[in-house]
Computed example of a mutant assay.
Amino acid sequence: GQISGSEPVPLVLILGQNGWSVTYTSTQICALKGSTVDMRCSYSYPSTVHNITPTVQDRFWFVKNNEKPVHLKSHSHRFEYRFHENDCTLRITGLRERDSAEYKFRFKTNQDGGSFTGSPGVTLTVTDLQVKVRRSSTQTELQCHTSCHVTDPPSYVWYNKGQKLKEETSSLRVSVRDDDSSYSCAVKGHEDHRLYYMLVSPSAETVEGSSITLNCGFTANPAANYTWYKGNSQRYLSEGTVLGLESIQPSDSGEYYCTAENELGRTSESIFINVKYPPKLVSVSASSSNEIKEGRSVTLTCNSDANPAAEHFWYKDGDPNPLSNERQLSFSSVQSSDSGEYFCAAENNLGRRTSESIVIVVICEINKFFFFSFSLEKFYKFTNYFQYF
């Protein structure tokens, strides 16, 4: 998935002297954050130099960072050389805005002075989604778009409170009475990267490990400065209208505030991000020691961390049929038959995890009355025996 330049760009041939060349399919590429882009190129060189057949000893792509070339192969695992014979294509996955730069291909041969760089190179612009807002007295129109000018625009998918809507269009009209909702849009095929638009006191749900972008829903004239904060403590996050959150963790849950300020005043709005995740840290605890006297009470508790909260199931001695689907398993008067190995499972719609086992041993108390009665019986038999004589 790449969003490329606005016009079909012909092959761009960078010619050197005596048959040295690098050919780029396009020198201007605009792509969406999170997508994958291929910079296609090929190269050539003379078949003979001073009656010697040259061989390629090194070939690589680079960008300039503070005027120093950065060799891309060691720069990041997201950069992949797809070299084959004279094909010198570069693939970049998981695009980030900081990947925007001019990329050049260079190759070297075993000849003195036998190297060539394709310059100018390929200029890559990485852009994120944006939401434009138009308000009237009866409705709000949200428009999802990218700043890339494209001949074949992508399809956009809209969500309301995390639920996918049928419309696959860049625009969405929202009634003002729906202002307690949150909306998000994504490019079709890249639904795991969404841009959220905040209405009045909205909230948004996402899954651990995903990426989202928050868009500050203000329009201001004169232009405003935008600042992002998190939580009641107003912890500073960043500047700008857009806040990107990558590889979200449960600790990222919370209230996010966007503040817009110009010489006419200051205003802010917030969105609550609820990060969902499967059960973790599933364990069993007992209200008393593992050795329990018969007739006593004991409660086993299944502990887990999950969002949404997990359902719990209890199992004994490897039996696949659950004993209970409550978080606590209680015995008001434990019996010897309750001895055994217990474990619990925690489950929500994102996954399931089981605990380690706990062994319960029920100790039987000696029936003193039984032994006392038995002793009296033996005593009577003993005395009767001597009376017989």
Results as ranks from 00 to 15, higher is better:
236 Y>S: 08
134 R>M: 08
267 T>H: 05
65 N>T: 12
171 S>Q: 14
364 C>L: 14
139 Q>A: 15
96 R>A: 08
57 Q>V: 14
133 V>L: 03
150 V>G: 05
272 F>L: 10
107 F>Q: 07
148 C>P: 08
83 F>L: 07
125 T>D: 11
83 F>S: 06
117 T>L: 02
220 A>P: 05
125 T>G: 05
389 F>M: 05
353 R>E: 15
120 P>N: 10
3 I>L: 15
237 L>I: 14
324 S>K: 11
327 R>E: 15
216 C>I: 00
188 K>E: 10
248 I>Q: 00
218 F>P: 00
148 C>H: 10
91 R>K: 14
228 W>T: 01
96 R>L: 12
142 L>H: 09
233 S>F: 05
69 P>H: 02
235 R>F: 04
130 Q>L: 12
310 A>D: 07
83 F>Q: 05
116 F>E: 06
217 G>F: 06
313 F>V: 00
82 R>T: 10
291 E>F: 06
7 E>L: 01
14 I>K: 12
380 Y>E: 07
136 S>F: 03
234 Q>M: 15
43 Y>N: 04
143 Q>P: 00
226 Y>I: 12
223 A>K: 09
105 F>N: 11
322 P>E: 08
387 Q>N: 04
338 D>M: 03
63 V>Y: 03
50 H>K: 13
300 L>Y: 08
115 S>G: 00
313 F>P: 00
310 A>H: 03
291 E>S: 09
208 E>F: 02
28 Q>N: 12
166 K>S: 14
151 T>K: 07
292 I>C: 06
16 G>Q: 04
276 K>C: 03
22 V>D: 08
85 E>G: 02
119 S>N: 12
192 D>R: 01
331 F>P: 02
165 L>D: 02
350 L>D: 11
35 S>T: 12
365 E>N: 13
296 R>V: 01
274 N>Q: 13
5 G>W: 07
181 S>P: 05
154 P>H: 10
244 G>V: 13
29 I>N: 09
43 Y>K: 06
193 H>D: 02
65 N>D: 12
105 F>Y: 13
293 K>C: 14
162 G>M: 08
120 P>I: 09
325 N>F: 01
251 S>M: 01
3 I>V: 15
343 F>S: 13
162 G>D: 07
231 G>L: 14
1 G>T: 07
280 K>I: 04
195 L>P: 00
308 P>I: 12
301 T>A: 05
